Amino acid sequence: MDKIYIKNLEVFARHGVFPEENALGQKFLISAVLYTDTRKAGMTDDLTASIHYGEVSQMMKAFIEENTFKLLETAAERLAFKMLMEISNLEQVKLEIKKPWAPIGIPLETVSVEILRGWHRAYIALGSNMGDKEAYLKQAVAALDEEEGCWVKQVSNFLTTEPYGYLDQDEFLNGCLELHTLLTPQELLELIHRIEADAERKREIRWGPRTLDLDILLYDDLILDTEDLTIPHIEMEKRDFVLRPLAQIAPLVRHPLTRKRVSEMLADLESE
């Protein structure tokens, strides 16, 4: 991805853990790498097709000057979030905030914090087989889209499917959506658990009846296996009720382990 650099933008602000720093202020230096696609701007000489580094510099300066944080980490995190939410065409940003006058009692050139933040693409499966199933699924889509730092790009049709695992229950209504998010996988998991709880989801029987079931299927090309989260979702390639709606919105997306496209996994499943 192409990059636009802003190096050592000088601002005077009031960040620090000591009251004197918050009252008197000091100098900070901000550097940013803006990850974007400059091809159209380069071919057309049109500034609106790129990112206006002058406006971005003014945004960074105003944010750092108008806010007060104890930690450089917080200043960097909040600034990166604001930039990604408000700057069109910005896919990722690398931020470094330097503190040349850090009050530590011994000579040093600078103390700095550098972070890399950006948009991620996740695919989430939705299911319900209790109450007003369609209403529960639509409620989940709306909740994800309304969360700050998230937006729903695509939603599949909702499909009626037979229950999986535990068969003595009603048919399911299933779907999938594509989500663009600034959340980490763990933060996204916590969010979907809150949405399930709002729908009064009960976890009493494995694969049992539920008002709402949300699962992270894919997150970029990430391969993750922790105590409470596995990505890609376990055995998604064996589940018709996952692959059919997912193939509607992402037929060419590849499984990061097998490298098979969603459309290929569905075809394999249907041929068995």
Score class of each variant (00 low, 15 high):
Y5S: 10
I6M: 07
N8F: 01
V11Y: 05
V11M: 08
G16A: 06
G16Y: 00
P19I: 02
N22H: 13
K27C: 00
S31A: 08
S31W: 04
L34F: 12
Y35R: 04
T38C: 15
T48E: 14
I51G: 08
Y53P: 03
G54H: 05
G54P: 02
A62W: 05
A76W: 05
R78T: 02
R78E: 10
L79F: 08
F81S: 09
F81C: 01
F81P: 07
L84N: 01
L84W: 02
E86T: 13
S88Q: 06
N89D: 03
L90S: 04
Q92V: 00
K98T: 11
P100L: 01
A102S: 13
G105E: 00
I106S: 10
P107S: 07
L108E: 07
V113A: 01
V113E: 02
R121I: 04
Y123S: 09
I124W: 09
L126D: 00
N129W: 01
M130L: 15
M130W: 05
G131I: 10
D132T: 10
K133V: 13
A135G: 03
A135D: 04
Y136M: 04
L137K: 05
L137G: 02
V141S: 06
V141M: 04
A142L: 09
D145I: 06
C150G: 05
W151S: 06
V152D: 13
V155H: 13
V155K: 13
L159Y: 08
E162T: 09
G165H: 11
Q169A: 15
N174F: 08
L179I: 06
L182M: 11
Q186P: 07
E187Q: 13
L189T: 10
E190L: 03
I192Y: 09
H193V: 03
I195H: 08
A197C: 02
E200W: 06
R201Y: 09
R203M: 11
R206E: 10
R210V: 09
R210S: 10
T211F: 14
L214C: 12
D215W: 11
I216K: 05
Y219K: 11
Y219M: 07
D221P: 12
T226C: 01
T230K: 15
H233S: 08
E235F: 12
K238I: 00
R239Q: 05
R239D: 03
R244I: 14
Q248I: 11
L252Y: 12
L252S: 14
P256I: 00
R259D: 03
R259L: 06
R259C: 03
S263I: 10
M265Q: 14
M265G: 08
D268V: 05
L269E: 07
S271W: 11
